[in-house]
């Protein structure tokens, strides 16, 4: 074979091989899954059925090793009380860890508790809250080292071994979902119990709720009964004005809830 032919044939061989080789790149299963994952986790909260027992908070703290005595929590329940004389009270003492057991409303460290006469109550309800696992999260955007990130199936997680503890994500979250873990000294927040849901288990809070106020679903599975509710019923999200596209949906969300 002449040198000229050898070079010619080499070029043809490379050109010919590059087409199927690039096709191999195209069908990389991981990339396909990432581009069109068949799982995207979402949460549904029914504020009508929540009674403020706080079982979810207790279950969450136990499951995720957040000390009971630490005044932070991955999930919490807020109580809203509107009186007939047009006053509004909101509280969540100890993140509702021990539930709402009386009619005294917590007004903070200076003002103590205020007892509200049951006859004076116009309307009252409970709102459970947790990380919204936003589709466009502000927290992952601002992390200077990429220690908090979004998984392909829609969960926002934190790498405890990489977080520098600057608190920028805590500031960036419009929902107050983030805090500093009192033991690990890095930022912590709800993971939708990623260690459980990836093994076909329910989250600790969903599992603990006696009234079914908390539900989880794969929003890509249109046959899932919870997905059907989110897609067909009138549901709302918290603070949509920030454009983070929260993935925790609420039934019966009042405008006063922020």
């Amino acid at each position: 074979m002449k040198r000229r032919d050898f070079l010619k044939n080499t070029i043809v061989a490379i050109a010919g091989a590059s087409v199927p080789l690039s096709a191999l790149e195209f069908i990389d299963p991981q990339e396909v899954l990432a581009a069109n994952p068949d799982i995207h986790w979402a949460f549904l909260i029914n504020t009508h059925t929540c009674v403020g027992c706080g079982f979810c908070v207790k279950a969450c703290k136990t499951e995720n090793d957040i000390p009971f005595e630490a005044n932070v929590s991955r999930t919490w329940v807020e109580r809203y009380v509107f009186t007939k004389d047009d006053r509004r009270y909101i509280d969540s003492p100890k993140a509702a860890l021990y539930g709402f057991t009386d009619s005294k409303v917590d007004l903070g460290e200076h003002l103590g508790f205020k007892d509200i006469e049951p006859e004076n109550v116009g309307k009252a309800f409970f709102v459970p809250k947790l990380c919204n696992h936003c589709e466009a999260p502000a927290c992952t955007q601002v992390c200077p080292v990429g220690a908090t990130y979004k998984t392909d199936d829609g969960i926002v997680l934190i790498d405890r071994s990489w977080c520098i503890g600057c608190g920028y994500c805590v500031m960036a979250c419009p929902f107050g979902a983030r805090f500093f873990h009192p033991v690990h000294n890095v930022v912590d927040k709800c993971t939708f119990c990623y260690h459980r849901i990836t093994k076909d288990l329910e989250t600790a809070c969903v599992n603990a709720c006696p009234f079914g106020a908390r539900k989880m679903c794969n929003i890509r599975d249109i046959n899932d009964p919870i997905t059907k509710i989110i897609l067909n019923d009138r549901v709302g999200v918290l603070k949509d004005e920030f454009g983070t596209k929260p993935q925790a949906f609420y039934i019966g969300l009042a405008t006063e809830v922020r």
Partner: peptide
């Protein structure tokens, strides 16, 4: 319950409704 201070708690005083975290 033993006192366990979370970061920020030592110098923060809350008034009316502030989110738990």
């Amino acid at each position: 319950e033993h006192a366990m201070h979370v970061h920020g708690e030592l110098w923060t005083v809350k008034e009316l409704f502030v989110l738990p975290n």
